[in-house]
């Protein structure tokens, strides 16, 4: 273990790799949440009905799902 740690220490900036990874994810996730929250509610409702055919009389109970 030690011998690997020694070898890894030789890579410039190795200690930042995991931090960069987490940081990339965090930024990505925050942007994603903001964008998703901005989607129009009616549109979202429309998307969620895509699996249904025109003839389907599916349940569209607004109290049942939040979308």
């Amino acid at each position: 273990m030690k011998i690997i740690a020694t070898a890894l220490e030789g890579i410039p900036g190795i200690e930042w790799y995991p931090i960069i990874g987490l940081f990339v994810f965090l930024i990505f996730f925050i942007i994603l949440i903001i964008r998703v929250m901005n989607i129009n509610q009616e549109e979202v409702s429309e998307f969620s009905q895509l699996p249904f055919d025109k003839g389907d009389t599916f349940v569209k109970d607004p109290t049942n799902h939040i979308n």
């Binding site: 969620s48 389907d56 599916f58 049942n64 799902h65």
Partner: peptide, 9 residues
């Protein structure tokens, strides 16, 4: 189930 997914978001 004949109903849309609970939360599309």
């Amino acid at each position: 189930a004949n109903r849309p997914v609970y939360s599309y978001k």
